[in-house]
Design a protein around this nucleic acid. Structure first.
Length: 245
DNA sequence: AGACCTAATCGTCACAGGTC
DNA sequence: GACCTGTGACGATTAGGTCT
């Protein structure tokens, strides 16, 4: 099965995996089903990480769901899109004062003219005509960690939305005539789309990491709070129930 | 030393949702 | 409705660790 065909299959028939799919996806299926269910929880804007019991239930229903019978509405609910990480994090931050917001990228773009001159020069050198690229200073986690230290610094770098060298803006459609020009235009558009999507994927992953770090730090804070409350409760219990000896 | 395993990372595709 | 953006999922690649 081709990559695309397989992908489509997975998306539209999440619960109806063929043997082939199960074979190759076995190690991932658990994670995916949890994520899908989680996305259903998150859709309403609540941050809802499944409990162990929920995870167990999810796994159970996923197994039994081989007997299909999930109506289209429910399936749609499950597959529906979750809010972006920025959205989630910002909602979190409005609930909990300690959590920093991810700034809108617009604010960073202010003051910089919307042209190619804003390109982050050393980031990536693309040879788009061949589809190859050379990321000399890619923002790998090791780089990020070195730059940011332990605690996450939200909005670490400016988004590199500018065009890479060698990608020329398309000519106006009216100026195209020959089939060759049309083909070149199509190729250029595709390369531009791929390049943008590449950058978008990087940004998305970066935000996801921030989001996860944020959740982890929140867990740490809540654990400390919980511990303190338990200690306080014990103290109050001691005070309120004097010994009878 | 090299075979194997595992986790991390990346580019790409498909698609939902947003924008104009 | 066409186009754009954000993100889940996939396969490929790579780095680091372990075993023989």
């Amino acid at each position: 099965m081709s990559k695309c065909g397989r992908k489509k299959y997975m998306r539209t028939n999440v619960r109806q995996m063929t043997m082939e799919t199960v074979e190759s996806q076995q190690d991932r299926s658990e994670t995916r089903s949890v994520a899908e269910h989680n996305s259903a929880h998150m859709q309403t804007g609540q941050i809802s990480v499944p409990t162990l019991a929920q995870v167990a239930t999810i796994a159970e229903t996923d197994d039994s769901a081989d007997s299909e019978v999930i109506d289209s509405h429910k399936r749609r609910e499950i597959l529906s899109r979750r809010p972006s990480y920025r959205k989630i994090l910002n909602e979190l931050s409005s609930d909990v004062p300690g959590i920093p917001k991810i700034e809108e990228e617009k604010s960073e773009e202010e003051g910089t003219p919307p042209n190619i001159a804003t390109m982050a020069v050393p980031t990536s050198i693309y040879q788009t005509s061949t589809g190859q690229y050379n990321e000399e200073t890619d923002l790998a986690p090791s780089h990020m960690a070195a730059a940011t230290g332990d605690m996450p610094t939200y909005q670490i770098r400016a988004p590199t939305t500018a065009l890479p060298q060698g990608v020329v803006m398309a000519a106006s459609p009216g100026s195209l005539h020959s089939p060759q020009q049309l083909a070149e235009e199509a190729t250029r558009k595709r390369e531009l789309r791929l390049m943008k999507n590449r950058e978008a994927a990087k940004e998305c992953r970066r935000r996801k990491k921030e989001y996860v770090k944020c959740l982890e730090s929140r867990v740490a804070v809540l654990e400390v709070q919980n511990k303190k409350l338990i200690e306080e409760l014990e103290t109050l219990k001691d005070i309120c129930s004097p010994k009878t000896d």
